[in-house]
Design a protein around this nucleic acid. Structure first.
Length: 429
RNA sequence: GCCGAGAUGGCCCAGCCCGGUAAGGCGCGAGCCUGGAAAGCUCGUGGAGGUUCACUCCUCGGGGGUUCAAAUCCCCCUCUCGGCGCCA
């Protein structure tokens, strides 16, 4: 959530930054300011009454029994009655203030391009030559189905629309990608974590999925728990309510988890496995001091890019404009992989700096050297990278004229084969 | 699911029966002392409001209640640990 003090002291700057996301935030912003002011007024008023009550109440036990004492007790009783209504008002204002703070997104960083949608994103670099197949390139869904490695029908049968199963070398490719990425990130210095994938409400609030995006989450009503939409949630909240030594920063985590998204109200914008309800992802999460967080973002993005470089998949990096920025993010780079069959790029990773927005919600602090008071730290994360979409990119880029798919070199030690061919149905024992 | 024990500042822990400003230790920070350090001593070490100096308020897992006054008494809930049950 936003730093209300910063907003009070730099109101116009904060408004301008927030409105980069869209004019619709003007209303909530002004409401936050006025609610905060009312809240502070009510707080002062209540505190003055509390002070009088406390003073009187404290003097009661020192008095001898008698009329004077009875009178004072009666006085405090009356004071309390007067306070009740005011305290209710204060509580309502506080709830409204908290609600506004939880539902207003992070402020974009000043150097993020201002724009309304993805058309205004800024391409900062591209890597690799976009491959042009000398035959009629097929989409991943067609390749996957004809090779028998992606089973859409049975995924739908057992779970429903937006689900798929992998078979044989397809399942193995998925597993190879997970292992390859985890190993690479370990080499880069990340600590591997295997987190929980069902989390409580507090964790979901901590990283910003709740309260605003509850409809997008799979919710387990009986226990009020949620299936994680990304490993960002458990990884970031690993350190919730903790105070770290400055010496222990930065902390780098990486983890593989399945991710679950309801995609409510959205139709599949593409055939195949680009947008589904369950997918695998290797995620990178960092905790840093405010001073080094933007450098950490550059490093994190480079670490995610390394995955595509080693797989030899052409890609580009774009800096998201204010209007395309995720709710909790202050600055985001998207990695987009090239797909020959579409002659276009598709998002495969998103690397973001959340500044202090998540850490304030999750109450993650550190103690700066030479200071005794804790400070809120910065959190970052990025896909390192989405497994399903990487499979899409591999099938598309590595397909051959005969319909088979060459296994990228770095994956061969994990796969044990060089080429993926048509899978027998079912495999004879 | 049942029974029992717990949850107190960064950490450990006292206080709870018997209501009256949250004790002590450790760690960390600042200062004193010192040639320098250690030791010792002093102060500080959660959050909010504030004319940012005072000062005030809130905070003992969460929420209600009783009371002039609640860490302490009553009710509800959550979580943790142990035992039983079930079990990959």
């Amino acid at each position: 959530m936003l730093d209300i003090r910063y907003i009070r002291e730099n109101t116009e700057e904060a408004r301008r930054r927030l409105l980069g996301r869209g004019e619709e935030w003007a209303g909530p912003f002004d409401e936050l300011l006025s609610t905060d002011e009312s809240w502070r007024g009510a707080l002062t008023e209540v505190n003055e009454l509390r002070q009088r009550r406390n003073e009187a109440s404290r003097s009661i036990p020192k008095m001898d029994d008698g009329d004077e004492k009875k009178k004072l007790i009666e006085e405090v009783r009356e004071l309390k009655e007067r306070m009740d209504g005011l305290e209710d008002d204060l509580k309502k204002l506080e709830e409204k203030r908290t609600d506004l703070l939880l539902n207003i997104p992070n402020l974009p960083v000043e150097n993020v391009p201002v724009g309304s949608d993805e058309a205004d994103n800024e391409i900062v670099r591209t890597w690799g030559e976009p491959k042009e197949h000398e035959f009629d390139a097929k989409g991943h869904e067609e390749i996957g189905e004809s090779l028998g490695i992606i089973d859409f029908e049975r995924g739908v049968k057992i779970s429903g629309s937006g689900f798929y199963a992998l078979r044989g070398d397809g399942a193995k490719l998925e597993r190879a990608l997970i292992c390859f990425m985890l190993d690479l990130h370990a080499e880069q210095g990340y600590e591997e974590i295997f987190p929980t994938i069902i989390v409580n409400e507090k964790a979901m609030i901590g990283t910003g999925q709740l309260p605003k995006f509850k409809d997008d989450m799979y919710w387990i009503e009986s226990d009020n728990m949620f299936l994680v939409p990304t490993a960002e949630v458990p990884l970031t909240n690993m350190l919730m309510d903790e105070i770290l030594d400055e010496d222990s920063l930065p902390i780098w985590f990486n983890a593989y988890t399945p991710c679950f998204r309801r995609e409510a109200g959205r139709h599949a914008d593409t055939k195949g496995i680009i947008r589904v309800h369950q997918f695998n992802k290797v995620e990178l999460v960092k905790f840093s001091t405010p001073e080094s967080s933007f450098d950490e973002l550059e490093g994190l993005t480079a670490d995610a890019e390394e995955v595509l470089k080693r797989l030899k998949i052409p890609y580009r990096v774009s800096l998201l404009c204010t209007g395309d920025l995720g709710f909790s993010s202050a600055k985001t780079y998207d990695l987009e992989a090239y797909l020959p069959s579409r002659n276009d790029y598709v998002e495969i990773s998103s690397c973001s700096d959340f500044t202090d927005y998540q850490a304030r919600r999750a109450n993650i602090r550190y103690r700066p050297k030479g200071e005794s008071k804790p400070r809120i730290l910065h959190t970052l994360n990025g896909s390192g990278i989405a497994i399903g979409r990487t499979m899409v990119a591999i099938l598309d880029n590595y397909q051959q004229a005969d319909g088979t798919v060459v296994v990228p070199e770095v994956l061969r030690p994990y796969m044990g084969i060089d080429v993926i061919e048509k899978q027998p149905l079912w495999r004879p024992i």
